[in-house]
């Protein structure tokens, strides 16, 4: 109430308990608010659709990703012979390759983010909660890793270990957890001074329990929002790694690889780039809308 344009008081809790409505945790309330956000809900449905198609199209489509059709090289989109998205310079069906690429891109997005999430949350929460010299040491280590250029790091990994898709997971995840750990550490520092953490110390809970029960559940809000933004970022990073020839290898494919191959024939065969690029863009939009929706839902005052 102190500053101008303050949000109104009592926008919520007062007396809901007294009114005898169904009890809701903060997560449940956030979900209720989220469901009212049409753009975000639409994005979820669209994203589910893209994911399902990515899983099932390669299973049931009449063509395989490696099948080459010498008689139909670089034909445009057609209903004939199930080449809905046309074919590429090797005569491979683009429809199945695009959805297969989606499978790889989404998996990379999710897996790399999971790696970043796991390492970043643990690392950041430990550094922030224990503080002091340990915090200083852990965060300087993060600073050192930050200063290594991503590409440089990945080129080293690839030259040492050879090219394979798991290396891509590892490489992207290993770089992206740095930002995550900084976010989590900042949140932890803020939550550490809350009185409920002091009250946990006062009843005699041990530090690991406080970390698990008091700190981590309360830092998850901003982390979830960041996750929805990290997944598309990681998809894009994989795309440019593939573009440079460091990512997914033929005959496997991903949206990034398809786009890089299509970019060379933009004039003669625009469909090569059009379909994967559209899907990539749609996925980006969806994740961003979901991220926005989650941010509003988790912190309704911060709009």
């Amino acid at each position: 109430m102190s500053a101008a344009k303050a949000p109104p008081l009592g926008s919520g809790p007062l007396g809901r308990a007294a009114r005898g409505e169904v009890s809701q945790s903060q997560w449940q309330q956030a979900w209720r608010r989220f469901r009212r956000n049409r753009a975000a809900m639409g994005s979820i449905w669209l994203l589910c659709l893209i994911a399902l198609l990515s899983i099932f199209v390669p299973m049931f489509w009449p063509h395989e990703i490696e099948d080459t059709y010498w008689e139909s090289i670089l034909i445009g989109p057609t209903l004939e012979n199930w080449h809905w998205f046309g074919t590429d310079a090797n005569g491979r069906d683009l429809f199945v390759r695009t959805w297969y690429g989606g499978r790889i891109s989404l998996t990379i997005g999710v897996m790399t983010t999971a790696v970043a999430l796991l390492i970043g949350v643990t690392y950041g929460a430990v550094a922030g909660f224990f503080g002091g010299r340990l915090d200083g040491f852990m965060m300087r280590f993060v600073d050192v890793l930050y200063s290594l250029p991503l590409l440089f790091f990945i080129i080293i990994l690839v030259t040492v270990f050879g090219r394979n898709i798991y290396l891509v997971f590892l490489a992207i995840g290993a770089v992206e957890w740095l930002t995550m750990s900084r976010i989590v550490r900042g949140q932890t520092l803020a939550i550490k001074t809350r009185e409920y953490v002091e009250s946990a110390v006062a009843i005699g809970l041990s530090r690991p329990v406080i970390l698990r029960r008091y700190i981590i559940p309360n830092v998850l809000g901003p982390v979830i929002v960041y996750v929805t933004l990290l997944i598309p970022t990681n998809i894009v990073i994989e795309s440019y790694l593939s573009f440079l020839g460091l990512g997914v290898q033929e005959p496997l494919t991903s949206w990034g690889l398809l786009i890089s191959q299509g970019a060379g024939q933009l004039d003669s065969a625009p469909w090569l780039i059009a379909f994967p690029a559209t899907l990539l863009a749609l996925t980006m939009f969806c994740f961003n809308f979901i991220g926005d929706g989650l941010r509003d839902a988790l912190d309704p005052r911060d709009r």
């Binding site: 903060q26 409920y196 002091e198 009250s199 946990a200 006062a202």
Partner: peptide, 15 residues
Amino acid sequence: LQIIFQDPLSSLNPR
């Protein structure tokens, strides 16, 4: 030996 704090809401773990 126990303690009660000033801010009623922030002294309870919201989760």
